[in-house]
Simulated scan of single mutants.
Amino acid sequence: MDTRALVFDVFGTVVDWRSGVAHDIRRLVPDVDAEAFADAWRSQYLPSMDRVRRGELPWMNLDELHRASLDVLLAEYGVPDAPESVRAELVLAWHRLDPWPDSVAGLEQLKERFVIASLSNGHVALLVNMAKHGGLAWDTVLSAELFGHYKGDPEVYLGAARLLGLPPEQVMMVAAHVDDLAAARACGLRTAYIHRPQEYGSKAAPPPVSDPEADLSVHSLTELADHLNT
């Protein structure tokens, strides 16, 4: 493989979204089941993006999508009178998620040889804040926002390769989600699957251990670095 750059899904692949969001829910809305609320909030992620894809909503960044679904969920969970300050702070929970234990070291090892960049549905401001919070050493921050499309759409993967000045086959998409990788492969990118068994908590159905269609399947970013840096 003549790989020159790696682009990374972020939520669930590089950072632990569930623990971080649940922590802030527990702190700010103590009367609800924080883990269940975090799961319900995340479950609105794809449906809300699909509404944008279908033209039912204009282009919205992730803060705006998260806020719209949050307002609905607060009512459903019995806290419809949560103040504006709490709602705004909850949306910002997605900006300060902690990396998985292997992420910072893995990214730093990979950066020694490759260009590394985010490629997330999160918008640029969110990704920059998250990188500062977690010490994520991106060479550049790439976001669906730059292309006016969410991941799954080819414009995101091909746009990332174009902005990096590389043909798609020299870019590797790294993700913990097989659908993301399948969409990237359809655009000619290389792919690496990261097994993140705790992304949805210990009670959820476990994700697949590997992606047989991916070029590599590993259990951490440090393991990915060991494979690619040899």
Score class of each variant (00 low, 15 high):
Leu110Asp: 07
Ala117Tyr: 12
Arg51Gly: 00
Arg113His: 14
Val79Tyr: 08
Gly78Ile: 15
Leu90Pro: 11
Ser143Lys: 06
His133Ser: 15
Arg67Thr: 00
Ala105Gly: 02
Pro30Tyr: 07
Ala75Phe: 05
Gln109Asp: 07
Leu65Asp: 04
Arg53Gly: 02
His95Glu: 08
Val72Tyr: 10
His95Trp: 14
Glu76Asp: 00
Ala68Leu: 13
Val156Glu: 02
Leu62Ser: 11
Pro47Tyr: 08
Val72Ala: 15
Val124Gly: 07
Leu28Lys: 00
Glu112Asp: 15
Ser48Ile: 09
Asp153Cys: 03
Ser43Cys: 10
Trp100Thr: 07
Ser85Phe: 07
Leu90Glu: 05
Pro58Gly: 04
Met60Pro: 01
Val86Tyr: 02
Val115Pro: 01
His123Pro: 06
Ala36Val: 07
Pro101Lys: 07
Ala75Gly: 09
Trp59Pro: 05
Lys111Cys: 09
Ser85Ala: 15
Leu119Ala: 15
Trp59Ser: 15
Ala82Ile: 10
Arg42Ala: 10
Phe147Tyr: 14
Gly55Glu: 01
Leu126Met: 15
Arg54Thr: 01
Gly106Ala: 07
Ala117Glu: 11
Gly106Phe: 09
Leu28Ile: 04
Thr140Met: 14
Leu146His: 14
Gln44Ala: 14
Val91Ala: 04
Ala36Asn: 01
Asp102Thr: 05
Leu92Ala: 12
Asp102Leu: 09
Ser118Phe: 02
Gly122Met: 10
Leu90Asn: 10
Leu74His: 06
Ala93Asn: 06
Met49Pro: 02
Tyr150Ser: 05
Leu90His: 13
Asp139Gln: 01
Val124Asp: 12
Leu110Asn: 12
Val104His: 04
Ala68His: 13
Leu110Thr: 07
Val86Asn: 02
Arg27Cys: 09
Pro83Glu: 05
Ala137Met: 04
Asp153Trp: 07
Ala88Lys: 14
Glu35Pro: 00
Val32Asn: 11
Trp59Cys: 13
Ser69Ala: 15
Ser43Gln: 00
Leu62Asn: 02
Leu28Ala: 01
Glu108Trp: 06
Pro47Phe: 04
Arg53Ile: 12
Val79Gln: 13
Met49Val: 00
Asp81Tyr: 14
Val52Ala: 01
Gln109Gly: 06
His123Met: 09
Arg27Ser: 11
Val86Cys: 00
Val86Phe: 03
Trp41Ala: 02
Val79Met: 05
Val141His: 08
Val29Gln: 05
Gly134Tyr: 07
Glu145Val: 05
Pro154Ile: 01
Ser118Gly: 09
Val52Thr: 02
Ala137Val: 12
Gly55Ser: 04
Arg27Leu: 00
Ser103Met: 10
Pro154Gly: 13
Arg54Ala: 06
Val32His: 11
Trp41Arg: 00
Trp100Ile: 06
Leu74Met: 04
Ala131Ile: 03
Leu62Cys: 04
Leu65Ile: 14
Arg113Asn: 12
Arg51Trp: 02
Lys132Thr: 09
Arg53Tyr: 09
Lys132Arg: 03
Ser69Asp: 12
Ala137Cys: 15
Asp39Asn: 03
Trp138Glu: 13
Leu127Val: 03
Glu89Tyr: 03
Asp24Gln: 11
Val128Asp: 06
Asp24His: 13
Val124Arg: 14
Trp41Gln: 03
Gly134Phe: 10
Pro154Cys: 03
Leu142Pro: 02
His23Gly: 05
Lys151Leu: 04
Leu57His: 02
Phe147Lys: 10
Met49Ile: 06
Val128Ile: 10
Leu127Ser: 01
Met49Ser: 07
Phe114Trp: 08
Asn121Gly: 01
Leu146Trp: 10
Val32Ile: 08
